[in-house]
Computed example of a mutant assay.
Amino acid sequence: MTNIVFLAGNIGNDPEMVNTRGGTKITDFRLATSRPKRADGKVVKGENGYTEQDTEWHRIKCFNGLAETVQKHCAKGMKVAVRGRIHYTRWTDDDDIERFSSEIIADAIDFLAWPKRDGAGNQTEDTDDIPF
């Protein structure tokens, strides 16, 4: 069996890149995905008649060339598709409590929409209206 993940959503923060002592470039960002909210097996609609959404946040990690591309071209609010794999980590904290975490190790990122920019080229808060 293969560990494959495909997520499409909005970048929730400006990507941050670090370099390891060994020269590996690593860029991290959070990705928000949404799905219709359900209760008793039915889709929940708000007072305005629109479907309510449940949002999940995913930690995305990119390495080397992809890390550089994401750092250079991605920003909060962009719509992207991420292809990669789930990675689980287990550790013991300072209080001797066993902790678990998961993240998505990205193999590819496809740009689905750019963030909107003002006349000076600065990103605005609104994004293109492409539903997922």
Rank of each mutant, 00 (worst) to 15 (best):
K37N: 04
Q71H: 14
I104H: 00
N10L: 12
R85L: 03
Y88V: 02
H73N: 14
A39S: 05
T24Q: 05
I97L: 14
S101H: 13
E98W: 11
P36L: 07
C62E: 00
V18Q: 10
D96V: 09
A67S: 14
W57S: 05
D96E: 13
D14E: 13
G77S: 07
K42I: 02
N13S: 15
T2H: 09
R59E: 00
L112I: 13
R90H: 12
G23N: 06
T69M: 02
P15H: 00
A8D: 06
K37R: 14
A32S: 09
K76A: 12
G77L: 03
V5H: 09
E16S: 09
V5L: 14
D93P: 07
K79N: 02
D14G: 09
R59F: 07
K72M: 11
R38C: 03
Y88F: 08
V18A: 06
F6I: 12
F63N: 07
R99W: 13
F100K: 11
E103V: 03
E56Y: 10
P36I: 06
D93W: 08
K37T: 01
I86R: 05
Q53M: 04
A108R: 15
C62F: 08
N19H: 09
D94Q: 13
L66K: 04
A113E: 15
L31F: 09
Y50G: 13
D107G: 12
N13C: 01
L7I: 13
E16R: 14
E16Y: 07
R99Y: 10
F63E: 02
I109H: 00
P36E: 05
R30W: 09
L66N: 03
M78I: 04
G49L: 03
Y50A: 07
A81C: 11
I97M: 15
E103R: 12
N10K: 06
G22E: 08
G12E: 10
R83Q: 15
K61E: 04
F63G: 05
W57A: 06
W114C: 09
T92C: 15
I97K: 13
A75T: 13
I104F: 08
H58Y: 14
W91F: 11
A39C: 10
I104A: 01
Q53I: 10
E16M: 06
D14H: 11
I97E: 04
L31H: 02
T89D: 12
A32N: 04
D40M: 10
T55L: 04
A81S: 13
D107I: 08
C74D: 01
A67V: 07
V70D: 00
V80H: 02
Q71M: 15
I86V: 14
L31S: 06
A108F: 07
T2K: 14
C74I: 02
E98T: 15
I97S: 12
V70R: 01
G65R: 07
R85C: 12
R83G: 13
I86F: 10
I109S: 00
T24L: 02
A81T: 06
K37D: 11
K42S: 02
G41A: 05
P36G: 07
M78Y: 03
I86P: 01
Q53A: 05
A39V: 11
H58D: 10
D54C: 01
I105L: 15
A32G: 15
F6Q: 07
F100I: 10
R30H: 14
I97H: 15
T20G: 13
V82T: 02
R83M: 11
L112Y: 01
G49P: 00
E52S: 04
D14M: 12
T20S: 12
G84D: 00
P15S: 12
T2I: 10
